[in-house]
Design a protein around this nucleic acid. Structure first.
Length: 405
RNA sequence: GCAGAGGUGGCGGAGCGGUCAAACGCAUCGGACUGUAAAUCCGACUCCUUCGGGAUACACUGGUUCAAAUCCAGUCCUCUGCACCA
């Protein structure tokens, strides 16, 4: 396949959502203009049962490279996942079993295909598993690789520093993680590696190794992370981590809980908006426009890319009806109950809103629960299921239907 | 191996014989206010309950006591220092 030099795409690769490019943006630009077909990759460790929205940032970049005709590798880090990346962890990570990892990676390619045209006819992406080469390394090979790095180099990492200060253990195998990632690069003869900025250290390790082994300079492209400099961010701990297997309604809803300050960065890294359009958004925000409307636009864009236009439209309607107009008549998740009547506590537990009856009881005491719009005050209430009812509990809404057998 | 310090709820971290389901902070969840934003305020935050209570919990296992997260013994684990350096 011929390599294109589309100015617009190249510009996007170099600037949009980029935190830093090493050794320099010019070095990358030069390679992109050289006409040579580059080997580009990002690794995804199957440590969780689903990819999340943070992963899509790199995937969009990969797609741009693919469009230009470069060879893109979608690397599933099935081996590295079992070791555990120490990045950002102030304590050692529990190692995953081979079975867990296999279970997790099942859906990764399918999910990624929403963003990357993996099976494109002209220029398909190569999906590879790093256990393919890492599993067969022997101790001699590993020592060989390890000899390229120094302990001082490893200890530079801030989270190792932190653990040293806190007298927490650093296990030897944790030093090996960047080496493995570096070895991936060598095996695929990588020209450009893409990853989040938190992956910088690991990616740089690969630079050293590939220089040592193949005598060539790998370019590292570190993407921006979804956070603001005052600490607002999206993540699991914020409760609004968007998993790629979330429903359209959930994706839309979770975006709506983003902190306003995240809007510009979110448009830049999570949507297909061009940088000029992102500037436009920023202007609208500073001009005093209600951020809510802009956030809806963001939610729509993200939902559309991850699902489809139709689903995004439906999700927006759902959101507006349920949460803004407080109209409970539109489509809401349906829960089937096989009984004629049910205790309110059991019902809440059935719907997975809370995991225990005690907790459900507390929710009722806190005025969180309503049925058909009426607040529930007593926890010993029996709910007759002669007709469908609407259960609302905090931000969860369910329509309850009875199944007659 | 020796010596010292230590292991408390999702996390950090008090408590050091009864009033401890465990201070305080963070995170989380509800409510108020809103835009399912932020900020702020209020409340909740082991499980079960016939709502009176009950059952488990402070690394593990035993013991002492009317009574243990708190005292004793053993076990496991972590950290620090020293020793060992094949």
């Amino acid at each position: 396949m011929e390599v294109l030099k589309d100015e617009k795409i190249i510009n996007r690769i170099l600037n949009k959502g980029v935190e830093q490019i090493l050794p320099s943006p010019d070095a990358l630009k030069e390679k992109l203009l050289s006409g040579k077909r580059l080997n580009v990759y990002q690794g995804f460790d199957p440590t969780a049962p689903t990819l999340h929205i943070g992963h899509t940032v790199g995937m969009r970049k990969l797609e741009d490279f693919r469009k230009l005709g470069h060879q893109v590798y979608f690397v599933i880090g099935d081996f590295t996942a079992r070791i555990g990346d120490p990045t950002d962890k102030t304590s050692a990570r529990v190692k995953l079993s081979k079975e867990q990892v296999e279970e997790n990676m099942k859906v990764y390619v399918e999910q990624a295909s929403h963003i990357i045209d993996i099976f494109n006819k002209e220029n398909p992406v190569k999906v590879v598993y790093n256990s393919q080469w890492l599993e067969s390394l022997n101790f001699g090979d590993i020592i060989d690789i390890a000899s390229v790095f120094t302990v001082q180099q490893m200890l530079k990492r801030s989270m190792f520093q932190k653990r040293l200060e806190e007298d927490k253990p650093i296990y030897l195998h944790e030093f090996l993680y960047p080496l493995m990632q570096g070895y991936d690069c060598v095996m695929m003869d990588i020209d450009v590696e893409i990853g989040g900025n938190d992956q910088l250290f690991n990616m740089l390790a690969g630079r050293d190794l590939i220089m040592n082994r193949l005598g060539k300079e790998k370019i590292v492209l570190a993407g921006k992370l979804l956070e603001t400099n005052d600490g607002s961010k999206m993540g699991k701990s914020e409760g609004n981590m968007i998993a790629l297997n979330d429903s359209a309604n959930d994706i839309f809803g979770k975006v709506m809980t983003f902190d306003d300050k995240l809007l510009p960065i979110a448009f830049e890294i999570l949507t297909s908006y061009e940088l000029e359009q992102v500037e436009e958004i920023k202007k609208r925000l500073t001009s005093g426009e209600n951020p809510m409307g802009i956030k809806k636009l963001l939610a729509y864009e993200i939902t559309k890319d991850l699902r489809s236009e139709q689903e995004a439209e439906k999700a927006q309607q759902y959101f507006e009806n349920i949460f803004q107009k407080k109209d409970l008549s539109t489509e809401i998740p349906i829960k089937m109950i096989h009984k004629e009547n049910i205790n309110i506590l059991d019902l809440i537990v059935e719907c997975n809103i809370s995991s225990s009856k005690s907790q459900a009881k507390r929710l009722i005491e806190q005025d969180a629960v309503s049925i058909d719009g009426n607040k529930i005050k007593n926890w010993d209430l029996n709910i007759p299921l002669q007709k469908d009812i609407i259960l609302k509990c905090g931000r969860h809404v369910y329509q309850i239907k009875r199944i007659t057998q």
